[in-house]
């Protein structure tokens, strides 16, 4: 029983990580209609920059956010400008962003080599520290990413649903032409959203640098799971992405602890198939079109 609860907790927390990566993806896909594989690259690029910052200065990795947040806002914005200028969307965007994905990966490999990189424990001692609730351990950086995921997804939801700009963005996702007729400046809003995506990548990247051993193609461990989270949560639904992340995290974690880690994709994705068959609108619906 103790094993069960411990694994449940660890699954919930790791779900936060899935959620925070998925939030950026789901906005890009749901609102701008760009299936952005390069979002994974940006996340890992941010992780590498965080690593570099910390190992060179010896400072806490999260201080690097002062650099990465503005930097990635600009990168995200430029990327979105590129998509806008060349009118890239839909499944064509999968091709273009795969090209970007390959280029980013080779740049990371060129700078940091393919060898494994990890932040030394004396810089991030809290990586292996936990908060304790009775006999149950909550790993500090995982709690951090969980809280960050809640904040990011909730704030984005509020932004999209309660502010004028957010409503305009949602209007674009539903009908660009009509939105334009009502005076919504599509281009500026798209660039803003691109910048936001970059910021999310920077935040997720900082946590990945703390939690994982980095390698340039580490992105592939996440692509399948994040795609599932994005679609399960409902395209464009940031709160849904968070919820779906937690569900998949818990499913993986419990399978891992009870049947065996080798079965965790089997159970997780069978579950997903069942959900699709019996509740095909996604667990949380599409916020962008609702």
């Amino acid at each position: 029983m103790q094993l069960f609860i411990q694994s449940l907790l660890s699954g919930i927390l790791i779900g936060g990580l899935y959620g925070i990566i998925a939030v950026g993806m789901t906005l890009n896909w749901g609102i701008m209609r760009v299936i952005n594989l390069a979002h994974f690259s940006l996340t890992f690029l941010a992780a590498y920059i965080t690593y570099q910052f910390s190992t060179v200065t010896g400072a806490d990795p999260f201080l690097s956010l002062f650099i990465t947040l503005p930097l990635f806002f600009v990168i995200g914005l430029v990327m979105q400008w590129f998509f806008e200028t060349f009118q890239i969307e839909g499944f064509v965007s999968l091709l273009v962003t795969f090209g970007l994905f390959a280029i980013f990966e080779s740049i990371m490999r060129e700078i940091w080599t393919a060898d494994l990189r990890t932040l030394p424990l004396d810089i991030v001692p809290y990586r292996v520290e936990s908060f304790w609730i009775g006999p149950y351990a909550l790993r500090k950086p995982q709690v951090g990413v969980f809280v960050a995921a809640i904040i990011v997804s909730a704030a984005t939801w509020v932004f999209l649903n309660r502010t004028y700009i957010g409503k305009a963005l949602r209007a674009i996702s539903q009908d660009r032409v009509v939105a334009g007729a009502f005076g919504v400046n599509h281009r500026q809003l798209a660039l803003l959203l691109g910048g936001m995506m970059g910021v999310y990548a920077a935040i997720a990247g900082a946590f990945i640098a703390v939690l994982f051993v980095l390698r340039p193609d580490g992105t592939v461990d996440f692509i399948g799971v994040i795609f599932a989270v994005v679609m399960l949560g409902g395209l464009g639904n940031t709160v849904g992405a968070f919820g779906a992340g937690v569900i998949i995290g818990v499913a993986q974690s419990l399978t891992s602890a009870t049947i065996g880690p080798g079965f965790s994709p089997l159970v997780t994705f069978s579950l997903l198939i069942l959900v699709l068959l019996f509740k095909p609108e996604g667990l949380f619906g599409r916020s962008a079109t609702s």
């Binding site: 694994s7 699954g11 994982f212 974690s253 602890a257 080798g262």
Partner: peptide, 16 residues
């Protein structure tokens, strides 16, 4: 315990 390559969460294994 056997785990596949690409495992991202080692928490449950550690707990076992």
């Amino acid at each position: 315990v056997e785990f596949p390559s690409g495992t991202t969460d080692y928490g449950p294994i550690a707990a076992q």
